[in-house]
Computed example of a mutant assay.
Amino acid sequence: MARGLLWAFVLLPLIEIALFVIVGGWLSLWPTLALVVLAAVAGMAVLRRQGAVTAGRMRAALAQGADPGGALAEGSLIMLAGVLLVLPGFLSDAVALMLLTPPLRRALIGWVGARVVTVNLGGFAARGAGMRGETIEGEWEEVDPSDTRHRPSGWTRPPLPDDRGQ
């Protein structure tokens, strides 16, 4: 893992520099710089807009009692695309444009989601890996819901599906 990160930190800047030289040779200096500046401006616009959009989608999902994970994953990938657009470089811009494509973004979320452990906390479930016959050790204690000794001060229990008549 560490060796892969080292290679990424060495190779990615070299690839970006090589792409600058190639694109600069095709287009000349000023059009190449204009593309870099245009990508950075577009990235800032994506970042500015996406924070509020993601928060709104998560609020709507929570209000409906649904899992906000999908909205969070979509918003996070779009914000990552915005950051990649802000960074100077054509490879990072190409990856950002792929992340801004909804079918590719959903495919990536599905691929990653199939490799993440399924956890159920307070009625929300996150799907994923670790469910391939592996045993996950842990300790648990059954607590009476009316017993407040185990709760932090000011804590209220989130609504469960039974509370909504489902």
Rank of each mutant, 00 (worst) to 15 (best):
P68K: 03
L99M: 08
W7L: 13
R157C: 05
P145T: 04
E139Y: 15
P103T: 07
R132W: 10
L91I: 09
G65T: 09
R151H: 11
I17K: 10
G43P: 00
V37L: 15
V143K: 09
L97H: 02
P13Y: 04
G128W: 04
L72H: 10
R151L: 14
L62Q: 02
M131R: 15
G110N: 08
A42Y: 01
W30V: 09
R105W: 02
L104E: 05
A60D: 11
R57D: 08
G154A: 08
R57E: 14
I109Q: 03
A63Y: 06
M58S: 00
P159M: 11
P103A: 12
M1H: 11
A2M: 11
V23I: 14
R59T: 03
L85A: 08
R149N: 12
Q166G: 11
G82Y: 01
A42C: 09
L33H: 00
V21Q: 04
P103C: 03
A96T: 01
L84A: 13
A73F: 13
G69A: 11
R3S: 07
P31W: 10
Q64S: 14
T148Y: 11
M79C: 12
V112E: 07
S76L: 12
R164P: 01
F124N: 10
R164I: 10
P31R: 03
L104C: 05
L11G: 11
A52T: 00
F20R: 03
A61T: 07
L77N: 02
E16V: 08
A34K: 02
L77S: 12
